[in-house]
Design a protein around this nucleic acid. Structure first.
Lengths: 129, 129
DNA sequence: CAGTATCCTGCTTGATACTG
DNA sequence: CAGTATCAAGCAGGATACTG
């Protein structure tokens, strides 16, 4: 009941020194986790990734990809065919991330409606306008 | 192998229309998930929350708290004692969120080192400076 | 195709001061 | 104590144009 239990639960989580981009819930940037999921079923090419990510700009996709590669979550393979072609794929580490992510996604699927309901209810309360 | 599998894995996740703040990995804003964890062991007062959150500004904390309340994840209880006092606590819905979050945190704990290693290795490669 | 280079905008966050 | 109001700043993200 004292203040003890108010200390950081996990030093990393609350430590701004630790790249906050690594905070457990925000894996990488806004897109990192989404990209990892897109690679779940196998390697994808740069332009292929832009589709499910709703036309994310090339710049941002490149940034995110570089970040994930830097963190050892994905690999980048440039094939030198007649046309340029680059594949991105999950590393074992990246793949392991799918497990906890699945838990979060499952929760979101199950409770999505409740959240929206709460939102609407809240919106109905302060009908100040 | 066709483009079929490249469609959004979960409509909500990739749909910018759906409040992106609800994307499974980014639960609420930057602070939402952290706050939920801070409430894991029981109700906390406004000023108590600022400690583990490393002195988050009152404005931002208020915003985050309002958002979580709006989504039915926490409750706000104002006690009218001699001094003002407000408690924030998890709702059952908010508490249920701890389960998937624990999975993510566990993963982060286990793989934190690997990520840092990969980062350092990557930093060592492009010693362009 | 797979990026890179710029420019630009908006949101998130923070600092500070003030209130009931 | 628990906020609200305001101002200011930084960075993520997007649009566009260009390159190997």
């Amino acid at each position: 009941m004292s203040e003890r239990s108010l200390e950081p639960l996990s030093a990393d989580m609350f430590d701004p020194v630790c790249p906050s981009s690594m905070s457990p819930i925000r894996i990488g940037d806004k897109w990192g986790a989404l990209i990892v999921r897109c690679l779940e079923d196998g390697p994808r090419r740069f332009s292929e990734l832009r589709v499910p990510l709703r036309g994310i700009s090339a710049k941002v996709l490149t940034q995110s990809l570089r970040g994930l590669e830097r963190d050892g979550l994905i690999t980048r393979t440039a094939h030198t065919d007649t046309i340029r072609r680059v594949d991105y794929a999950l590393t074992p580490l990246g793949r392991s991330m799918l497990v906890p992510m699945a838990a979060v996604c499952e929760w979101a699927d199950e409770n999505w409606d409740r959240l929206l309901d709460a939102r609407e209810a809240a919106a109905g309360l302060d009908r100040t306008a």
